[in-house]
C-alpha cells in the first residue's frame, strides 16, 4: 500500500505527557490504561474518533498522537486515568504540538524533570 500524499492524510496533534507515580510504569501498562479510560468515557466509536496512539514512552515521559480536532477530548480522557498497573498515578499533559519534534523539543527536553519519588505520599 502506498503512503497517502500529505494533503490527503488526516491531521494530527502530538501530546507530550508525563506520568507522575510512586514507581515507574511500563509502556504496556500505560497503553492498557489509556484505552480503558477512553473506552469507558467515550465508548468504542468515540475512542476511534480520538485516534489515540502512544508513540514513545521513556523515563515516565512520552508522546501521544491524537486527531487534531480531538485534543480536548483526549486530554479529558487522559485526566480520568487514576491508576496505572495497580498504583495511583497522574497523566499530566505537558503540552500539545503539531509535530513530534515540536512536542519533544518544547515540552519534554525543556521540562523540569519531576522526580516521582519526591511527590509520592
Amino acid at each position: 500500500m502506498k503512503t497517502l500524499p500529505s494533503s490527503l492524510r488526516e491531521r494530527k496533534r502530538y501530546l507530550a505527557i508525563e506520568v507522575i507515580s510512586k514507581s515507574d510504569v511500563t509502556r504496556e501498562e500505560l497503553i492498557r490504561e489509556i484505552f480503558a479510560a477512553t473506552g469507558s468515557l467515550y465508548g468504542d466509536i468515540g475512542s476511534s474518533e480520538c485516534g489515540l496512539r502512544l508513540l514513545d514512552f521513556e523515563k515516565q515521559k512520552g508522546v501521544i498522537r491524537c486527531s487534531h480536532m480531538m485534543t480536548e477530548r483526549s486530554r479529558a480522557a487522559l485526566a480520568t486515568i487514576n491508576t496505572i498497573g495497580g498504583q495511583r498515578a497522574i497523566v499530566h499533559v505537558l503540552g500539545i504540538s503539531g509535530t513530534v519534534q515540536g512536542a519533544t523539543q518544547k515540552y519534554i527536553q525543556c521540562a523540569t524533570i519531576s522526580r516521582p519519588e519526591h511527590i509520592s505520599i
Binding site: 507522575i20 477530548r73 486530554r75 479529558a76 485526566a79 480520568t80 498515578a89 497522574i90 499530566h92
Partner: peptide, 18 residues
C-alpha cells in the same frame, strides 16, 4: 482526596467540557 487526584488547570477545563 489525595495528591494523585489532583489535575492541572487545562485538564480540569477539558473535564468541565464533558
Amino acid at each position: 482526596r489525595s495528591i494523585y487526584d489532583m489535575r492541572g488547570p487545562r485538564e480540569l477545563i477539558a473535564l468541565a467540557g464533558l
